[in-house]
Amino acid sequence: MSQIVTPADAGPAVDPVDPLPDDSARRLPRLATVLGWVGGAVVVALVLIAVFAPQLAPYDPTERVGVPFSPPGADHLLGTNDVGQDLLSELIHGTRVSLLVGIVAATVAIVIGGTIGTVAGYYPRRLGATLMRGVDVVLILPFLPLLIVLAAYLGRSLITTTLVIGSLIWAGSARVIRSQVLSLRTRDYVLAAKSMGATDRWAIRRHVLPRTALLASGEFVQATASAILLEAALSFLGLGDPLQKSWGSILYWAQVRGAFFGPAWKWWVLPPGLMIMAASLGFALLAFSLEERINPRL
């Protein structure tokens, strides 16, 4: 005789929008968990390097402390550049600048994208449709040429670079957040609150924003990885602040002063390139793990 399953035996209903980390059906695969820990460890290591850069750097990165183009040795583990500055000290301090640009630019992008996505999802008709057409326009624009033109036109400074990057990478987050808000606005608890006289602002603040915060955190991590890469690209092209020690500016000066055409590329070009790759990979792995856990589409 087949077993009859009663509602009490069926277990709790699963909300497809709200993430349930404790539910067995929503557990991360083992590989995603491992990759998330690896990415988190890389990110934490980079943050610690950035925070304690003055203590970790053996020299002041702006001071001439050795013979120009010295190869790696006991006094200078990564050698020196063309004016005798210690490249390891530049690399450590560059971690602070590159992460700062990435985090601030990602914050700008999430604020813009989250605001537009929330409004467009909660008011999906005229206002939402108008906002999403603007998002579509941003997404179809040639991104890199536009970024280069804006950076060149607005001038070379760290603030300009950060704001330009943040103002151009928000559109993808807006679409993702809007898709979740579209589902949340018709949930029973939102409709019940509105039937009892709650305003739209209260419903968004009380019910919508808390349930999109985790999704926004995953988008923030992805935006940080993109911003770090874009800052390095702009600085390498000479569109960043040449006076700031970032990974991209180190590559820019290496290219300008001919390090690519001699043995100096091994200790001047390769380390910042590896740091950019490590940061991008760390944030990407962390974002992958977070997305598997909190994105309702998955």
Rank of each mutant, 00 (worst) to 15 (best):
M1E: 07
Q3R: 06
Q3C: 07
I4C: 02
D9T: 00
G11E: 13
A13E: 14
D15L: 01
D15P: 03
P19Q: 07
D22W: 07
R27L: 15
L31T: 00
T33G: 12
W37L: 10
V44W: 08
L46P: 00
V47T: 10
I49W: 07
A50S: 15
P54C: 14
P54I: 08
P58D: 07
D60C: 04
R64C: 00
V65M: 09
G66E: 13
P68L: 05
P72N: 09
D82W: 14
V83W: 06
Q85S: 04
D86P: 09
L87S: 06
S89I: 08
S89L: 10
H93D: 06
G94P: 02
T95L: 05
L99S: 01
I103L: 12
V104D: 10
T107S: 14
V108E: 14
G114A: 06
A120E: 05
Y122N: 03
R125D: 11
G128P: 09
T130M: 09
L131A: 09
M132K: 05
R133W: 06
D136Q: 03
P142T: 06
L144A: 13
P145E: 07
L146S: 12
L146K: 09
S157P: 11
S157V: 12
T162L: 05
L163F: 07
G166L: 08
G166P: 14
S173E: 10
R175P: 06
V176L: 15
I177F: 04
R185D: 05
T186G: 05
K194I: 03
S195H: 06
G197F: 02
T199K: 11
D200P: 08
R201L: 10
R201K: 12
A203C: 08
H207V: 05
P210K: 11
R211N: 14
L215V: 08
L215Q: 06
E219S: 11
A225F: 02
A225K: 01
L239E: 06
L239D: 06
G240Q: 07
G240D: 02
S246E: 01
G248Q: 03
I250G: 04
Y252I: 05
W253F: 10
W253L: 04
V256M: 07
V256N: 06
G258K: 01
A259F: 01
F260V: 00
P263L: 01
P263R: 00
W265F: 09
P272Y: 09
G273A: 14
L274Y: 00
M275L: 11
L281Y: 04
F283Y: 12
L286S: 01
S289W: 00
L290I: 15
L290T: 07
I294M: 11
I294Y: 15
R297F: 00
